[in-house]
Design a protein around this nucleic acid. Structure first.
Lengths: 224, 224
DNA sequence: AATTAATTGTAAAGAAATGTAAAAATTCAG
DNA sequence: CTGAATTTTTACATTTCTTTACAATTAATT
């Protein structure tokens, strides 16, 4: 459930948008002036900000300018006039997208989803290049070839470690047995090769969580 | 074949439009007052609604306002006067497009196609990004491959889980057996293959609600 | 209405894949 | 080379999936 912060002084408008977004599966908070908005945005527990340009106390541009040095939270700007658009999308200001008022609520949702997806993908890419994988209580260091569960080291064999990494890299997605065999055991999977299953079994025993699930006749998945 | 519902009290006009749209490859139904229109639209088996503003019993705005909380079906509004336009496309009312009468039928078709294309894209995006399906007491996490009923986990086998997801993704719509077989069992449905029926049977037993209904000689539906 | 045909529901048997303990083979540090 | 650690294979229990068989239901036909 993604959390959206709306900063707009039109309370009726906020309510309308909030209602629509709630139906679409977002969690919405609204504040009605620039100062309060900046403070709330900096609290760092929101996923995205919808920011109106015309605001009391501190206008949208100023909010964004003060927000950016301390936060990378995605921002979608709302604007009434067309001539602000260049400033917004240009580098100068650093918003992620803009939408002129009035807009179709579906368009808003589509843009929110697009932004959130972009952010998600860039985070995943970051994961690929970084050394650490972390999902809930489990943390793995690739170069250190070590795994910690609730900050305590767990002893894994080499194959178990590679298997865990292969699964965690694709966490939430099904990984085929064939692929695991190639990645982890460095050989094609042959019909009665049970080695992989054994490693899964042993890994499950060591992790002692219910995260690794079986997809019969397909593979395994590390569930989120 | 996309299904279009026309809500307009001018029967002659409806017939004309229906004829034109049928030639263009749409399947058209027409009703002639607001109340009947609302009921038909909520049946959830249409792909798009063409809604006139001036209507007996319940006007177009009211129909849309009552429709929206329960349905995201795209709506194109027909209006005689230009001054409604802002209200229609603006946030307040939630229509997807509008067209002033009288219009060129080609223009109508172009707009219908545009709306349907937008919706399709946004649905695909949504499918890619949403992890949770929730219908009443039942909640499913795709990445977690788990299902909860009234917040308590229910143990489903891999096939049962995929089957439930396939049905819930199309909730309120009939899903053909052929499609289910391909999606869930990854094979074409052959004449005496009863496997799917067994899985439905087992899933029903586990869910213990009356939600999965049979559409004889077609498929199954997860009812809303 | 009675008969027939087609489809579905489901218990139960059979087939296939998975879980895992234990034995055998392999690897590797010293 | 030796011995422990790791990996693979084996063997059997368990689970999941498919097929079979028959009863129940629905639809079509006489």
């Amino acid at each position: 459930m993604k959390k959206i912060l709306i900063i707009d002084d039109d309370e009726e408008f906020c309510e309308l948008v909030a209602e629509y977004l709630t139906v679409e599966g977002f969690e919405v908070t609204a504040v009605h002036d620039g100062e309060a908005g900046l403070i709330k945005a900096l609290e760092n527990n929101q996923d995205l900000v919808i920011l109106d340009v015309m605001l009391p106390k501190k206008n949208g541009f100023d909010v964004l300018r003060e927000l950016r040095p301390n936060s990378t939270i995605p921002v979608l700007m709302l604007t009434a006039r067309g001539d602000d658009i260049e400033r917004i999308v240009g580098l100068e200001i650093g918003a992620d997208d803009y939408l002129p008022k009035p807009f179709n609520p579906r368009e808003l949702v589509a843009r929110l989803r697009a932004i959130l997806r972009r952010v998600q993908i860039s985070q995943e890419n970051q994961q690929l290049t970084t050394d650490n994988l972390k999902i809930e209580e489990l943390e793995v260091s690739i170069t250190g070839r070590s795994a910690k569960q609730n900050s305590v080291e767990i002893q894994l064999t080499s194959v178990e470690f590679d298997l865990l990494v292969a699964l965690m890299r694709e966490a939430g997605k099904i990984v085929k047995k064939e692929d695991l065999s190639v990645q982890v055991l460095e050989r094609r999977l042959s019909p009665f090769d049970r080695s992989l299953d054994m490693h899964v079994s042993n890994l499950r025993k060591k992790l002692n969580n219910e995260r690794i699930k079986t997809i019969r006749s397909v593979g395994y998945i590390y569930t989120l």
